[in-house]
Protein backbone atom coordinates (compact mmCIF):
# COMPACT_ATOMS: atom_id res chain seq x y z
CA UNK A 1 0.00 0.00 0.00
CA UNK A 2 2.79 2.35 0.97
CA UNK A 3 6.42 1.99 0.08
CA UNK A 4 9.37 4.14 1.02
CA UNK A 5 12.57 3.66 -0.96
CA UNK A 6 16.01 5.02 -0.15
CA UNK A 7 14.61 7.87 1.91
CA UNK A 8 17.12 10.49 2.97
CA UNK A 9 16.36 13.60 5.06
CA UNK A 10 18.68 16.44 5.93
CA UNK A 11 18.24 19.30 8.39
CA UNK A 12 20.97 21.68 7.32
CA UNK A 13 24.05 19.54 7.61
CA UNK A 14 22.61 16.86 9.82
CA UNK A 15 21.43 13.72 8.13
CA UNK A 16 18.45 12.80 10.25
CA UNK A 17 17.60 9.91 7.97
CA UNK A 18 20.40 8.29 5.98
CA UNK A 19 18.57 5.53 4.18
CA UNK A 20 15.20 4.07 5.03
CA UNK A 21 13.32 1.48 3.00
CA UNK A 22 10.04 0.07 4.17
CA UNK A 23 6.70 -1.11 2.88
CA UNK A 24 3.36 -1.24 4.62
CA UNK A 25 0.84 -3.77 3.39
CA UNK A 26 -2.84 -3.05 3.28
CA UNK A 27 -4.59 -3.76 6.60
CA UNK A 28 -1.51 -4.28 8.74
CA UNK A 29 0.21 -2.39 11.53
CA UNK A 30 3.84 -1.74 10.83
CA UNK A 31 5.72 -0.49 13.88
CA UNK A 32 8.66 1.82 13.32
CA UNK A 33 10.73 1.66 16.50
CA UNK A 34 14.06 3.00 17.67
CA UNK A 35 15.66 5.32 20.19
CA UNK A 36 15.05 9.04 20.24
CA UNK A 37 16.79 10.71 17.32
CA UNK A 38 16.82 7.55 15.21
CA UNK A 39 14.80 9.27 12.49
CA UNK A 40 11.33 7.83 13.10
CA UNK A 41 9.38 11.08 13.29
CA UNK A 42 11.30 12.54 10.38
CA UNK A 43 10.33 9.54 8.27
CA UNK A 44 6.65 10.02 9.10
CA UNK A 45 6.94 13.75 8.43
CA UNK A 46 8.48 13.05 5.03
CA UNK A 47 5.67 10.68 4.08
CA UNK A 48 3.07 13.25 5.13
CA UNK A 49 4.79 16.05 3.21
CA UNK A 50 5.76 18.11 6.25
CA UNK A 51 9.47 17.40 5.97
CA UNK A 52 11.54 17.94 2.83
CA UNK A 53 12.86 14.78 1.24
CA UNK A 54 16.54 15.02 0.23
CA UNK A 55 16.53 11.77 -1.77
CA UNK A 56 14.38 8.70 -2.24
CA UNK A 57 10.80 7.98 -3.12
CA UNK A 58 7.47 7.61 -1.34
CA UNK A 59 4.76 5.69 -3.21
CA UNK A 60 1.20 5.36 -1.95
CA UNK A 61 -1.23 3.06 -3.75
CA UNK A 62 1.01 3.09 -6.79
CA UNK A 63 1.20 6.91 -6.95
CA UNK A 64 4.45 8.74 -6.32
CA UNK A 65 3.70 11.22 -3.51
CA UNK A 66 7.29 12.29 -2.84
CA UNK A 67 7.56 15.98 -2.06
CA UNK A 68 3.84 16.72 -2.36
CA UNK A 69 2.39 19.37 -0.05
CA UNK A 70 0.86 18.00 3.17
CA UNK A 71 -2.64 19.01 2.10
CA UNK A 72 -2.26 17.05 -1.14
CA UNK A 73 -0.97 13.94 0.64
CA UNK A 74 -3.87 14.18 3.09
CA UNK A 75 -6.36 14.31 0.24
CA UNK A 76 -4.84 11.18 -1.24
CA UNK A 77 -5.87 9.29 1.89
CA UNK A 78 -2.88 9.38 4.26
CA UNK A 79 -3.50 10.96 7.65
CA UNK A 80 -0.77 11.83 10.14
CA UNK A 81 -1.47 12.04 13.86
CA UNK A 82 1.50 14.18 14.87
CA UNK A 83 3.74 13.72 17.87
CA UNK A 84 2.52 15.60 20.92
CA UNK A 85 -1.07 15.40 19.59
CA UNK A 86 -1.17 19.04 18.46
CA UNK A 87 -4.91 19.37 18.73
CA UNK A 88 -6.22 22.93 18.30
CA UNK A 89 -6.33 24.00 21.93
CA UNK A 90 -8.49 27.08 21.46
CA UNK A 91 -11.08 25.26 19.34
CA UNK A 92 -13.86 23.07 20.67
CA UNK A 93 -13.81 19.32 20.24
CA UNK A 94 -16.59 19.77 17.66
CA UNK A 95 -14.49 22.23 15.64
CA UNK A 96 -11.41 20.03 15.83
CA UNK A 97 -13.46 17.18 14.38
CA UNK A 98 -14.99 19.44 11.77
CA UNK A 99 -11.58 20.44 10.44
CA UNK A 100 -10.63 16.81 10.28
CA UNK A 101 -13.61 16.29 7.99
CA UNK A 102 -12.99 19.43 5.95
CA UNK A 103 -12.10 17.43 2.85
CA UNK A 104 -15.62 15.97 2.59
CA UNK A 105 -17.54 17.84 -0.02
CA UNK A 106 -21.14 17.21 1.09
CA UNK A 107 -21.59 18.38 4.66
CA UNK A 108 -23.98 15.52 5.33
CA UNK A 109 -21.18 13.05 4.77
CA UNK A 110 -19.00 14.85 7.30
CA UNK A 111 -21.82 14.78 9.82
CA UNK A 112 -22.27 11.08 9.32
CA UNK A 113 -18.59 10.52 9.81
CA UNK A 114 -18.60 12.62 12.95
CA UNK A 115 -21.40 10.48 14.38
CA UNK A 116 -19.27 7.39 13.72
CA UNK A 117 -16.36 8.96 15.54
CA UNK A 118 -18.48 9.91 18.53
CA UNK A 119 -19.64 6.29 18.68
CA UNK A 120 -16.04 5.11 18.62
CA UNK A 121 -14.88 7.72 21.16
CA UNK A 122 -17.75 8.27 23.62
CA UNK A 123 -15.55 10.56 25.70
CA UNK A 124 -15.54 13.08 22.84
CA UNK A 125 -19.31 13.25 22.86
CA UNK A 126 -19.17 14.11 26.52
CA UNK A 127 -16.75 16.98 25.92
CA UNK A 128 -18.20 17.94 22.54
CA UNK A 129 -18.43 21.67 23.36
CA UNK A 130 -15.27 21.83 25.51
CA UNK A 131 -12.11 23.55 24.30
CA UNK A 132 -9.49 21.08 23.12
CA UNK A 133 -6.93 22.60 25.46
CA UNK A 134 -9.02 21.69 28.48
CA UNK A 135 -8.93 17.97 27.76
CA UNK A 136 -6.47 15.69 29.53
CA UNK A 137 -3.53 14.23 27.66
CA UNK A 138 -5.30 10.93 26.97
CA UNK A 139 -8.47 12.63 25.80
CA UNK A 140 -6.41 14.87 23.55
CA UNK A 141 -4.78 11.80 22.02
CA UNK A 142 -8.23 10.34 21.32
CA UNK A 143 -9.29 13.60 19.77
CA UNK A 144 -6.17 13.72 17.61
CA UNK A 145 -6.83 10.21 16.31
CA UNK A 146 -10.53 10.89 15.78
CA UNK A 147 -9.69 14.12 13.96
CA UNK A 148 -7.37 12.24 11.62
CA UNK A 149 -10.01 9.55 11.00
CA UNK A 150 -12.62 12.18 10.11
CA UNK A 151 -11.06 12.55 6.67
CA UNK A 152 -11.74 8.83 5.96
CA UNK A 153 -8.08 8.08 5.33
CA UNK A 154 -7.08 4.70 3.95
CA UNK A 155 -3.94 4.80 6.01
CA UNK A 156 -2.93 6.55 9.22
CA UNK A 157 0.50 7.44 10.52
CA UNK A 158 0.65 7.52 14.32
CA UNK A 159 3.59 9.37 15.86
CA UNK A 160 4.30 8.37 19.45
CA UNK A 161 0.73 7.96 20.63
CA UNK A 162 1.89 6.91 24.12
CA UNK A 163 3.98 10.02 24.66
CA UNK A 164 3.44 11.54 28.08
CA UNK A 165 0.40 9.39 28.86
CA UNK A 166 -0.19 7.57 32.14
CA UNK A 167 -0.01 3.74 31.88
CA UNK A 168 -3.78 3.06 32.00
CA UNK A 169 -4.33 5.63 29.29
CA UNK A 170 -1.65 4.07 27.15
CA UNK A 171 -3.55 0.82 27.36
CA UNK A 172 -6.78 2.52 26.29
CA UNK A 173 -5.08 4.18 23.33
CA UNK A 174 -3.42 0.96 22.23
CA UNK A 175 -6.65 -1.02 22.58
CA UNK A 176 -8.14 1.52 20.26
CA UNK A 177 -5.35 1.13 17.73
CA UNK A 178 -5.89 -2.62 17.78
CA UNK A 179 -9.59 -1.99 17.22
CA UNK A 180 -8.84 0.16 14.17
CA UNK A 181 -6.66 -2.59 12.80
CA UNK A 182 -9.50 -5.09 13.18
CA UNK A 183 -11.68 -2.74 11.18
CA UNK A 184 -9.18 -2.95 8.35
CA UNK A 185 -7.23 0.27 8.76
CA UNK A 186 -3.62 0.31 7.57
CA UNK A 187 -1.37 1.80 10.24
CA UNK A 188 2.22 2.94 10.39
CA UNK A 189 3.03 3.31 14.07
CA UNK A 190 6.05 5.14 15.45
CA UNK A 191 6.68 4.23 19.03
CA UNK A 192 9.74 4.30 21.22
CA UNK A 193 8.24 1.91 23.70
CA UNK A 194 9.27 -1.20 21.78
CA UNK A 195 7.49 -3.93 23.68
CA UNK A 196 4.25 -2.02 23.57
CA UNK A 197 4.59 -1.54 19.82
CA UNK A 198 5.56 -5.15 19.20
CA UNK A 199 2.54 -6.43 21.12
CA UNK A 200 0.19 -4.72 18.73
CA UNK A 201 2.07 -4.68 15.41
CA UNK A 202 2.16 -7.28 12.65
CA UNK A 203 5.63 -6.39 11.55
CA UNK A 204 8.27 -3.96 12.76
CA UNK A 205 11.25 -2.03 11.49
CA UNK A 206 13.99 -0.89 13.88
CA UNK A 207 15.78 2.36 13.09
CA UNK A 208 19.11 3.49 14.53
CA UNK A 209 21.01 6.57 13.42
CA UNK A 210 18.71 7.08 10.48
CA UNK A 211 19.06 3.60 9.08
CA UNK A 212 17.09 0.38 9.21
CA UNK A 213 19.03 -2.02 11.43
CA UNK A 214 16.46 -4.76 11.89
CA UNK A 215 13.15 -5.74 10.46
CA UNK A 216 10.83 -8.70 10.65
CA UNK A 217 7.59 -9.88 12.14
CA UNK A 218 6.71 -8.51 15.55
CA UNK A 219 7.13 -11.97 17.07
CA UNK A 220 10.62 -12.42 15.71
CA UNK A 221 11.75 -9.05 16.98
CA UNK A 222 10.14 -9.46 20.37
CA UNK A 223 12.36 -12.45 21.07
CA UNK A 224 15.49 -10.83 19.63
CA UNK A 225 18.21 -9.79 22.05
CA UNK A 226 19.37 -7.17 19.60
CA UNK A 227 16.41 -4.96 20.42
CA UNK A 228 17.06 -5.11 24.12
CA UNK A 229 20.69 -4.30 23.46
CA UNK A 230 19.95 -1.33 21.25
CA UNK A 231 17.80 0.17 23.95
CA UNK A 232 19.53 -0.49 27.21
CA UNK A 233 23.09 -0.75 25.95
CA UNK A 234 23.36 -3.92 27.97
Amino acid sequence: MLSVEGLKIRYGEVEAVRRVDLTVESGEILALVGANGAGKSSTLGAIAGLVRVAAGKVVFEGVDITGLAPEVVARKGVALVPEGRRIFASLTVADNLRLGGAVHQPAAEARLREEEMLELFPILRRYYRAKGGNLSGGEQQMLAIARALMGKPRMILLDEPSLGLAPQLIDTVFDLIAELRRKGMTILLVEQNVALALEIADRAVVLANGEVVLSGTAKELASSDLVRQAYLGA
Partner: peptide, 18 residues
Protein backbone atom coordinates in the same frame (compact mmCIF):
# COMPACT_ATOMS: atom_id res chain seq x y z
CA UNK B 1 20.04 0.77 37.08
CA UNK B 2 20.43 -1.65 34.19
CA UNK B 3 19.04 -4.48 36.26
CA UNK B 4 16.27 -2.54 37.94
CA UNK B 5 12.93 -4.10 36.92
CA UNK B 6 11.14 -0.75 37.02
CA UNK B 7 13.64 0.66 34.53
CA UNK B 8 13.32 -2.29 32.22
CA UNK B 9 9.56 -1.89 32.37
CA UNK B 10 9.72 1.80 31.60
CA UNK B 11 11.90 1.25 28.57
CA UNK B 12 10.99 -2.15 27.24
CA UNK B 13 7.86 -2.30 29.29
CA UNK B 14 5.16 -4.43 27.82
CA UNK B 15 1.92 -4.32 29.70
CA UNK B 16 2.78 -7.60 31.37
CA UNK B 17 6.20 -6.39 32.46
CA UNK B 18 4.62 -3.28 33.85
Amino acid sequence: VQNNPAVIAAYLGSRTAR
